[in-house]
Amino acid sequence: MQYGDHLYSKGNHDGAVQQYIRTIGKLEPSYVIRKFLDAQRIHNLTAYLQTLHRQSLANADHTTLLLNCYTKLKDSSKLEEFIKTKSESEVHFDVETAIKVLRQAGYYSHALYLAENHAHHEWYLKIQLEDIKNYQEALRYIGKLPFEQAESNMKRYGKILMHHIPEQTTQLLKGLCTDYRPSLEGRGDREAPGCRANSEEFIPIFANNPRELKAFLEHMSEVQPDSPQGIYDTLLELRLQNWAHEEDPQVKPGRATRGVEKNIALPFLLWLPLARFRSITPHPEGLNGSP
């Protein structure tokens, strides 16, 4: 350390950093880091931090500092060399910290690389949807995730995806709620039994997309007859709304209840049109108010 200090005091920063590198594991890194930060010797600081990481002695703050050095130097080759390790055992830094720093610096492709390769799904989708606004890619990514993660991310991001790419989003939801298997790209087992989400829980996603909602509800009622009651109730309500606005009298008969009769309780079926269009509130005891 003393020889390193001597070289540093003489202005030989390159020689000094080589001496300080030899003290890694013995000398507190903050001592060296402060020296080169104060002197604004970013190249020397980068060399020291790189060695600190290679010896697996770096913490999250060191990773943040090193990545900031790379981005300030605009050294993309060194940055890629640092993040594109061949295996998990070769990762000498906190991945989530690196993703945050790269995202903040605008290095989105590098941040996405880390997020995808280290299964930080939430960060991958955040960057695609909030920064790059690549909705197609975000939906593709969700479609290759395991069931539980695909389900939770569709609940989280379904509305924004429905707003921008309604048809593709509806297709994924149909699969998710019937017989979901991750896409082959996600290396899922296509022969394994599929999973299915509760279709009723996704109805709010279609709040501003009645056409896609109708397609989704009709698909669920046809493909999965044991769908939750809310699917049939919402489908009937949607058809009644369409029926109320239908101007062709020859089209009206039977349209509202087609395909849903056997799944709607008779009292509800009798009462709902009246309640909708005459503002009648049903009595809990029965349709006519008597027990």
Rank of each mutant, 00 (worst) to 15 (best):
Y3Q: 13
G4D: 07
D5P: 02
D5N: 15
H6G: 01
L7C: 03
L7K: 10
L7A: 02
H13Q: 09
G15K: 07
A16W: 08
V17I: 14
V17K: 04
Y20I: 04
Y20L: 06
I21C: 03
R22E: 12
T23G: 02
I24W: 04
I24Q: 05
I24C: 03
K26V: 12
K26M: 10
K26F: 13
E28N: 15
E28Q: 13
P29L: 08
S30C: 05
I33D: 04
R34D: 14
L37F: 02
D38S: 15
A39C: 09
A39D: 11
A39Y: 09
A39F: 09
Q40K: 15
R41N: 12
I42H: 06
I42T: 13
H43R: 12
H43M: 11
H43Q: 12
H43W: 09
H43L: 13
N44F: 03
N44L: 05
L45D: 02
L45R: 04
L49H: 01
Q50H: 06
T51Y: 09
H53K: 08
R54G: 10
Q55Y: 10
S56P: 00
S56G: 02
A58D: 07
N59H: 11
A60S: 15
A60K: 13
D61F: 11
D61I: 10
D61P: 00
H62N: 15
T63V: 11
T63I: 08
T63D: 12
T64P: 00
T64I: 05
L67F: 04
L67R: 01
N68K: 12
N68D: 10
C69P: 00
C69H: 00
L73T: 06
L73R: 13
K74I: 02
K74M: 09
D75H: 08
D75I: 01
S76R: 14
K78N: 13
K78A: 14
K78R: 13
L79K: 05
E80K: 14
E80V: 02
E80A: 07
E81C: 05
I83W: 03
I83E: 06
I83R: 07
K84Q: 15
K84F: 05
T85H: 08
K86V: 09
E88S: 11
E88L: 10
S89N: 14
E90G: 09
H92Q: 11
F93A: 05
D94L: 09
V95N: 04
E96M: 10
A98M: 09
I99R: 02
I99L: 06
I99T: 03
K100R: 14
R103H: 08
Q104F: 07
Y108Q: 10
Y108T: 08
Y108L: 14
Y108S: 09
S109G: 01
S109Y: 11
S109C: 01
H110L: 05
Y113F: 15
L114T: 02
